[in-house]
Amino acid sequence: MKKVLVVDDSLSVARLLEKIIAESGDFTCVGHARDGAEAIKMNHTENPEIICMDMNMPGMDGLTALRTLSVMDKEVKVVMVTSLGGVGDKFTEALKLGAKNVISKPFEADNVLRILRAL
């Protein structure tokens, strides 16, 4: 099973994503980071294959963390999960920084799993 790290300052979104991941049968959640800096640390300690990361977080935001992760770890695949997905500039910036895809909130479990399975 592929290891997934969830990064979101929202407890409720993290809970929902962890539930979707746990019930998928294909993925296992290795932890929950609450900002970009914690995500970078947990990427090192938990070595996930996939990171599902929010963009708009207090402290280090998702795009800043993505920029760092793209340099530090060429293997990990990052998918942004954000309410700002529909803002064209933010979406394009995430892809240019190396995100594999961007999931807009509100999301549906089917859509999340389809995108994770396609990575």
Partner: peptide, 18 residues
Amino acid sequence: MAVKFFGQFMVEQGIITS
């Protein structure tokens, strides 16, 4: 289920690559 622009819709649906 969210407000999107066309390019994003196409990538999210898996019709085109990023």
